[in-house]
Design a protein around this nucleic acid. Structure first.
Length: 550
RNA sequence: AGGGGUAUAGCCAAGUCGGUAAGGCAACGGAUUUUGAUUCCGUCAUGCGUAGGUUCGAGUCCUGCUACCCCUGCCA
């Protein structure tokens, strides 16, 4: 049972007759200025959880009120990522489609004496805003006549005033302890081509003015956002209070704490910096906690959704260890992933009593924990590769994989007893020798003796190399791998490892901020390294790169 | 003249009217095991930031402290 206080709030609103149970409506309002990351996954989860529970309507609305920062590139990507995550919005909307209405409402506010054109520079506005402990001072233009305000505002729209020369401000209270209420700017002049409205406008509404109107137009009942907007709620309500059309049945803003994962970078600004400086491979670099990065890394959408549900929704700041996401990845992959054997760091294993040149095809269960599991065909022969660290010449205490004299099971095949190893002059193990016992064939019901270790292997002449890029995709249910046998050779890792080097080069030795973890999932693992599926190989990076404070 | 939030286990988090601290992750035992995985059993807060108060009874109510987060964009 996941926790979500927002359900309680909605329930109360329904009980109190504020909203009807069948008219609940939410929205996910990203600004199209970057790619989505785990943090967005939580916001998406919350909005769509409401949709599911209340049979509500949920929109995807681009909050595109600042053309200077937005790009069409991102709108497509955002939709792809949400669709991949498995959420289906009822309608795709653009805040910019409401610009005309917003403009009319601004005129209404001017007519009511609640907004004015301010000719001060941005510096003057800033300095007259006061400070956290000092009142602000009113603009000298605050009491301009309604007629002048109207005329100026119209001229602003017509492009007759330079960018930055004037703004439309709300007339609220320069002495408010809430900075947001000190005559906030409602409209600014921006001669920027807008990705959606092109050059139709040269004045653009600010978030605080636009957002409540967007919600109200769409009849959103619960406008869910993160905690930093809590201080903006009085302004949100002020806007709706003062526009006649929205006085009744208006949306209610509810704030929740953002999701933070320890060590995961989730600020667009810093993410963009990593991408732009080529410190990472792109927005889908598997070390990033972008939705695309996670996907490439092999994280399933279901796992992310389960993770969000488990974490719950509350108002307290929190930081969740990555291991908690990992758990849900393993849980889901364990149920759904196709399994194959893979060797990351190969070591030659020769079955000396197996006929040379002979290859036999074994039926190996895809999931040994499921007796009804389907099987796949895997080639077995004399010349195999095993994971290098599945062999020890001088095994430490408690080691129960391969070492001279010890017997282990080759998963899905036979028991194999280590008879020795070929070692070069420097003591490097070149090849491990063993003998197999035909009676111990997998599935034969052999119980005469037991082994403590089971290891993975691939047959050397039939194993296939795999591209690094495919590592994460291997288990993507939408991109099934049809391979029976796969082999990862060490060069597969080079590309990923080189990412690490780049990061380190960019590092500042005085800073140990850790921003990435390289890890990926693949079908089978090497015993002892991490288990069945996930985290076969995980590389922790300490980087010197320090994210800028926004 | 500052304002707004938040404090429950190592990490998240439930706890509507006050009635004797859910659940998940992690950890630790043990059973099963053809992956040192999975699965399965079990353990894990006389305690709810802190000091008082009210009450038969307080995580819940009252008062005073403390810590952390957010707010001075013509960003969202």
């Amino acid at each position: 049972m996941s926790s979500n206080f927002i359900f309680n709030e909605i329930d109360k609103d329904i009980e109190n007759g504020i909203y009807l149970a069948d008219e609940i409506k939410t929205r996910f309002p990203p600004e199209p200025n970057g790619y989505l990351h785990v943090g967005h996954a939580k916001a998406l989860y919350i909005n769509f959880a409401v949709k599911e529970k209340y049979n509500a309507t949920t929109y995807l609305r681009y909050d595109d009120t600042n053309p200077a920062k937005e790009d069409i590139e991102y709108t497509e990507a955002i939709q792809e990522d949400i669709a991949w995550l498995g959420f289906k919005w009822d309608q795709l909307l653009f805040a910019s489609d409401y610009f005309e209405t917003m403009y009319e409402h601004a005129i209404e506010l001017i007519n009511k004496g609640l907004a004015f054109i301010d000719d001060q520079t941005s510096e003057e506005i800033r300095s007259s805003r006061g400070s956290l402990v000092e009142k602000g001072t009113e603009s000298p233009w605050r009491n301009r006549s309604i007629e002048d305000n109207l005329k100026l505002f119209r001229e602003m729209r017509e492009g007759k005033h330079e960018a930055g020369s004037r703004v439309l401000r709300a007339k609220i209270d320069m002495s408010s302890p809430n900075m947001n209420m000190r005559d906030p700017v409602l409209y600014r002049i921006l001669f920027e081509s807008h990705p959606h409205t092109n050059d139709e406008w040269c004045i653009y509404p600010m978030y605080d003015y636009a957002h409540p109107i967007e919600d109200a137009i769409e009849k959103i009942t619960h406008s869910l956002c993160s905690m930093e907007y809590e201080d903006h709620r009085p302004l949100y309500d002020w806007v709706l209070d003062n526009i006649d059309a929205y006085k009744e049945k208006r949306p209610r803003q509810i704030e929740f704490a953002r999701l933070a994962i320890k060590g995961a970078l989730t600020s667009k600004r810093n993410l963009k910096k990593l991408v732009d400086n080529n410190i990472v491979d792109g927005w889908d670099d598997p070390r990033l906690y972008t939705l695309r990065g996670l996907r490439r890394r092999g994280v399933s959408a279901q796992a992310i959704r389960n993770f969000c549900a488990a974490v719950g929704v509350a108002k307290a700041n929190s930081e969740i260890p990555r291991e908690q996401l990992d758990y849900y990845v393993r849980e889901d992959l364990g149920k759904t992933a196709k399994r194959i054997m893979a060797v990351v760091n190969p070591l030659k294993l020769t079955v000396t009593n197996y006929p040379e040149g002979q290859i036999e095809i074994l039926d190996v269960p895809n999931d040994t924990s499921d007796p009804d599991s389907e099987t796949r065909q895997v080639a077995f022969g004399r010349d195999l590769y095993i994971e290098a660290d599945d062999f020890e010449q001088n095994p430490p205490k408690g080691y129960h994989r391969l070492y001279p004299g010890n017997e282990v099971r080759l998963m899905g095949a036979y028991f194999v007893k280590c008879t020795g190893a070929v070692v070069d002059a420097d003591g490097n193990v070149l090849e491990v020798l063993c003998e197999y016992d035909p009676e111990t064939k997998s599935g034969s019901g052999f119980t005469a003796r037991k082994v403590k270790g089971t290891i993975h292997w691939v047959e050397s002449t039939t194993a296939l190399p795999i591209e690094t890029r495919q590592l994460g995709e291997l288990l993507d249910p939408e991109k099934p791998s049809g391979d029976v046998l796969e082999r990862l050779n060490s060069s597969s890792l080079e590309r990923l490892d080189s990412f690490a080097e780049k990061s380190l080069e960019a590092a500042n030795p005085s800073d140990t901020f850790q921003f990435v973890r390289l890890g990926y999932y693949c079908a089978d693992s090497t015993p002892g390294v991490g288990g069945k599926m996930a985290f076969n190989r995980t590389v922790e990076l300490k980087s010197t790169w320090k994210p800028e404070k926004a």
